[in-house]
Design a binder for these strands. Sequence first.
DNA 1: CTGTCCGCGTGGAACGTTCCAGCGAGCGTA
DNA 2: TACGCTCGCTGGAACGTTCCACGCGGACAG
Lengths: 335, 335
Amino acid sequence: MAALAGVSKSTVSNVIRGTDGVAAATRERVDRAIEILGYRPNVLARQFVQQRTTILGVLVGDLDNPFYAEMAKRIERYAFDAGYTAMFCNIEGEGDEDFALSRVESLLEQRVAGIVFLAFFGRSPDVQRRLDATAPVVFAGLREDWGDSVSVSDSGGAKLATEHLIGLGHRRIAYLTTDHVEARASRARLAGYRSAMRAARVKAGPAITWAADSEFATIKGQQVSLVDELTGRRGVTAVFCSNDLGAIGLLEFADRHGIDVPGQLSIVGFDNVQLAGLARISLTTVSQPFDDIARIGIQAVLGRLSGSITGPFRHEVVKPSLVVRTSTAPPRASR
Amino acid sequence: MAALAGVSKSTVSNVIRGTDGVAAATRERVDRAIEILGYRPNVLARQFVQQRTTILGVLVGDLDNPFYAEMAKRIERYAFDAGYTAMFCNIEGEGDEDFALSRVESLLEQRVAGIVFLAFFGRSPDVQRRLDATAPVVFAGLREDWGDSVSVSDSGGAKLATEHLIGLGHRRIAYLTTDHVEARASRARLAGYRSAMRAARVKAGPAITWAADSEFATIKGQQVSLVDELTGRRGVTAVFCSNDLGAIGLLEFADRHGIDVPGQLSIVGFDNVQLAGLARISLTTVSQPFDDIARIGIQAVLGRLSGSITGPFRHEVVKPSLVVRTSTAPPRASR
DNA sequence: CTGTCCGCGTGGAACGTTCCAGCGAGCGTA
DNA sequence: TACGCTCGCTGGAACGTTCCACGCGGACAG
């Protein structure tokens, strides 16, 4: 106890926390004593008495997926800038709902100050209630209605992509999703695609669900051959994919089957992960402003924590933009 | 206090911690009371009295780099499996030593149980001393001598790569590094490359340092044009790169300058990030067993924590393997 | 001169665990 | 019967903060 420097522990506490009501001279004296003794306040004791930490829990879909890795990095940075540290939980994918919930529980046990969801699936009224009671929640990069959220306009982004394809002259355009996890985003993107098609008076193409690496896909629950869909007599000339990883998977699929991109098939992705910008990939895609999403997301949590934001959940929507690269081109006249 | 179930708090504590010396009947009774009251032990209080957490600090180079993201994911998973949570700190790169040290300090303040370094630069005897005293340290994926480490055999991997190129018939082979951060690994890989060249009685080529995206590079401190090095009269036919990201950068560089890979130039990388396996990249590379490294690294920290490992630092070395893809081929006879 | 108020600092309670010394009952043994 | 040992449980101290009620002295107003 640095009280050896002439004051009580209460005063030391006041100095450290910067409480006012401490005379300048005293503060000075205490600071010097702290310096001399190399005294460090015990974070664990502070956390204990306050019953909360300065840790933010972050739920990540899958760090192998650059989308999450790139978001995670930015979340961590903004959290750190605000004096918080980030505790990451990776919840693989494949809809393992119980696992995700158990991770949330363990974050709550750790008494994290707040939770940032970069991905979510699973619903548990029980966990939700405990969350409401203990820690502010923000969804960053996706939208859910039981917490603040900040996300790109899925429909807006889908429109950008679709209008780009239509503008190039495509008329037979498919929507392709590989998602299970972010089903909600995927649906919103599908809706945006359809609305853009409708607005251009073009008949919407099939909505394809595909497990990357498979030869088959499903349309309205019917299994189909993906090659047929892309090259058959009624095949499409362009595909809008619900995310970059799916688009890149499709690119590779096309390569394997000798389908020329963009000669025979144009492909648009969604996210603009760094990978999409490699010259060898060069994917036209809808860019999400990762940095803005992370910044606003952290601000939301901090605002709730400090009480500067109260009331009903806020849903910030940021603007996507289109990055045109070389995976899209006008359809071949010959077709 | 669940003592309302007929026992003292000490007994409850004993039951929760699974101490033996509690009668089965009592244990049963306490368990039931816990169930009924929905009682949850207060982690913060426990941490306070024990003066340590079950958090592992993880220092990551840059999550935008898939190498770190893929390692981070696996570290997190093994930590979780062992009952620990992972607190990540991203220390961008570019040698910002003070920043890295301040992140380590903040982890120590949080009283993390141990620290896993996936990257490191900067040396501070002061911080090192505090680390020694408070938390076990493991380097995963790189080797340092002031903590346990688990890493791939850099020289062994470099040999695999170099021998592969020599085996294909290459004689003019360069070593290229883009590293600043992991200078140590880069040096070890260079050494492995040189020793393989010597063993095959081939004259070692230049050791090139390159900042990706630049037209220029340096050899022994001399600035040179990278194109000249690759295509000039005395140009090389193959390059062994110190890591995949550098190799992919070089691939793109070659594309931009109309240098055919592997026709004119063979390229080998190091790491085998998932990205390298994309058909459009298809990089021949030295594979690091990420999963093993993460597992062994976590085991090391846990072993130190439990006291089952004591004594001098251990340096586990795991075996790399070569993954041959299409960025390498025999040199053109015509040259 | 007295009463009041304010600025500054103090001491102790509280937080919920873990840890430890100790105690009582029951049992086996001399 | 008496003694000691073991098992099971208990009660209190300790951990290092924060928070709060209070006390003291000086300044200022009446």
